[in-house]
C-alpha cells in the first residue's frame, strides 16, 4: 500500500504554546456491531470491485482471485451483498459461539 499520510504528529515538534486536541488515531473495532456477516462465494466473484466501491467502511480487501470483507471492521450493513452484480455475497446471521 502506498502511504499518503504523514504520521499524525510528532509530539516533540509541537510548540509549547500550541495545544492540539488530538495526537493519536482512535481505534474502534466496529466489527463488534455486526448482526449479519457477508460471506463471499469465491466461485462467483469476478473481482469487479463493486463491493469495495460502495462499502462505507472501506473494509473490503483484495485476495488473489476474489474480494472479501475485513470482519474486524465490517459493520454488516449489507450494501456489498445488495450491490454485487453477480450475487456472490450473502449475508448470514452472526451466531454467538
Amino acid at each position: 500500500m502506498k502511504l499518503q499520510a504523514r504520521k499524525p504528529f510528532d509530539q516533540s515538534t509541537i510548540p509549547n504554546d500550541l495545544c492540539p486536541i488530538a495526537t493519536e488515531y482512535s481505534v474502534l473495532k466496529t466489527g463488534d456491531w455486526r448482526a449479519e456477516r457477508p460471506i463471499v462465494d469465491r466461485d462467483k466473484c469476478v473481482k469487479c470491485a463493486n463491493c469495495w466501491l460502495y462499502c462505507p467502511t472501506q473494509c473490503i480487501k483484495e485476495k488473489p482471485a476474489w474480494f472479501e470483507a475485513n470482519l474486524i471492521i465490517c459493520k454488516g450493513c449489507g450494501i456489498c451483498a445488495q450491490e454485487c452484480p453477480h450475487h456472490a455475497i450473502t449475508m448470514i446471521e452472526e451466531l454467538e459461539d
Binding site: 499518503q4 499520510a5 474502534l28 462505507p56 467502511t57 474486524i72 471492521i73
Partner: peptide, 19 residues
C-alpha cells in the same frame, strides 16, 4: 491509496457520509 480515515468510526450502518 491510503484511506485517510481510520478503519473504524462510529457512523451508523450504511452511512453515506462515511462512504
Amino acid at each position: 491509496m491510503e484511506d485517510l480515515f481510520v478503519p473504524g468510526i462510529s457512523a451508523c450502518l450504511g452511512c453515506n457520509s462515511e462512504l
